[in-house]
């Protein structure tokens, strides 16, 4: 598999502080908002580079969201475990989830 192919199967999600999370494209597409960004027609930078920056989502929240993406995929394949959410971040996470249609 060539490095270019590899790149197409992952996307880079960048937090407000500039932290980069490289996740499977399939996982990131759990978010309807990200799916739209990555699949919209035209030459949006997100579609081109496979990178999305979230200036309003902090690093710990974005990390939690990435965890959810993978949890969602596992759930869909029949592995139904509990998804733990720390009470301190719930509200902020909920707002991000709302934005991401997740």
């Amino acid at each position: 598999m060539s490095p270019e192919m590899k790149k197409e199967e992952t996307v880079k999600l960048i937090s407000a502080e500039g932290f980069e999370f490289v996740v499977d494209k399939q996982a990131a597409m759990v978010s309807q908002t990200i799916r739209n960004m990555l699949t919209s027609p035209g030459n949006f930078s997100e579609t081109q580079l496979g990178e999305v920056t979230f200036p309003e989502i902090s690093t710990p929240i974005l990390e939690k969201i990435c965890q959810y993406f993978y949890w969602h995929l596992q759930f869909a394949s029949g592995k139904e475990t509990e998804f733990h959410i720390e009470p301190e971040i719930t509200l902020e996470l909920m707002m991000a989830a709302n934005y991401l249609h997740t």
Binding site: Y68, T90, L93, M94, A97, L100, T102
Partner: peptide, 11 residues
């Protein structure tokens, strides 16, 4: 599968 929004609301 519950959405993250639903999970947060439950929490």
């Amino acid at each position: 599968c519950p959405t993250l929004l639903e999970l947060c609301a439950r929490k």
